[in-house]
Design a protein around this nucleic acid. Structure first.
Lengths: 204, 204
DNA sequence: TATTTGTTGACCGATTCGGTCGATGGTTGT
DNA sequence: ACAACCATCGACCGAATCGGTCAACAAATA
């Protein structure tokens, strides 16, 4: 473990990314250490040299992700905009900041939340409800909904945005790094379009 | 192969579903025949008895899916509504009709389109561009965009709807059969909300 | 040069892979 | 009643792959 942490930052990131990708795509059991090593362009032996066992590697990734979630993403929690769409934009922007460095962060997290392999299920239990509470409080706490037109059903808007965000996020890993910013702008354009058409005129 | 086709309809569906699920979730190589058999509650031997080889099973599924795509889904192609949102609703409704019987149809198709295993890549090439052309023509052909408010950027709307539809579809397989209709209604509600706020007043 | 450190490919036993096959038990025709 | 048939399964096959180890080589440090 300390073998890995004493690596140069970007080599760490490369390896982490490969591991996040392979685990995220295949789940714990079907992800093989060889696949991860190949993806990271190192030998299988090195993975064991760095992390000890496959399980240790997986749990390191879980721990790393939870630290990212509590760190950069919650640091803005206090002064989150009360405006719904503004918050949506800030949130995705922050999220994309992470995804730019770790494109498979999200896929791994999703896969992890539905992971059921007995070899790691115990250790995951702790992190799971943690991520759940985080997600919900983050989204709606202290939100100002008063700017919406009165005939707009907020429940519907909320669900719609969840779908949108999911569809959007799901395709992030397909974008090349240089196109990512444009892709994010496209999302913001959509958010703006909604704001413009769903808010009362006096708030535009 | 004829062994399988002479099975009662619903047993065929059960097995097909299990195969679509396992292949869709794991890709061709990592999907194991044992997993499929377990999911379908039959013995591994039966899978081989029905389909011959793993490859034959996979290609059967591909062929089956392409037939579904050319059959039920294109039968409405001629009299598709020219109204954008109306078409969106009709399309998802049809799509859901399929997904009610084959919940993993979509996941399998997505996975298939990015399948790269050399053992099947040749045979897939044919189906791939087929699915691509289908998707695009289906979506936009002969559409009436004149009802939108003039300051609405259509490109943005289109992209947004793609994200929405993807996020929505992605969660269909999580819904229980009895809740599926409600879930579809939620999507239609969202479509209605958009239509109501993005169309010129005279078209409401 | 001597020594440590990073890295690898060959290798281990165990498991799982796709696929086969003989045994079993139910169904059908006679 | 028997025989012919056929669906179904569990045991089994050789080959591949699994997680993990280790001796040996290369590079850097001293």
């Amino acid at each position: 473990m300390e073998n890995f942490l004493s690596l140069p930052e970007d080599k760490q990131r490369t390896i982490r990314n490969s591991a996040l990708k392979v685990f995220g795509e295949n789940g714990y059991k079907k992800a093989s250490v060889k696949d991860i090593a190949d993806e990271a362009d190192i030998s299988k032996s090195m993975v064991f040299h760095y992390f000890g066992t496959k399980k240790d590697l997986y749990l390191y990734l879980v721990d790393y992700c939870s630290k990212v979630l509590t760190g950069p993403l919650t640091s803005i929690q206090k002064d989150l905009p009360r405006d719904y769409f503004e918050r949506m934009k800030v949130a995705t922007e922050k999220q994309m900041g992470v995804l730019k460095d770790e494109p498979f962060f999200l896929k791994f997290l999703t896969s992890m939340l539905s992971e059921s392999d007995p070899e790691i299920s115990e250790e995951l239990q702790t992190y799971r409800n943690y991520a759940a509470t985080f997600q919900s409080s983050y989204a709606l706490d202290d939100m100002d909904f008063s700017k919406f037109k009165e005939d707009v059903d907020l429940k519907v808007v909320l669900r719609m945005m969840v779908w949108m965000a999911e569809g959007f996020s799901r395709n992030v890993s397909l974008e090349s790094e240089e196109d990512l910013d444009k892709y994010i702008d496209q999302f913001n354009e959509a958010v703006e379009l909604l704001r413009f058409n769903l808010y009362k005129e006096e708030y535009l």
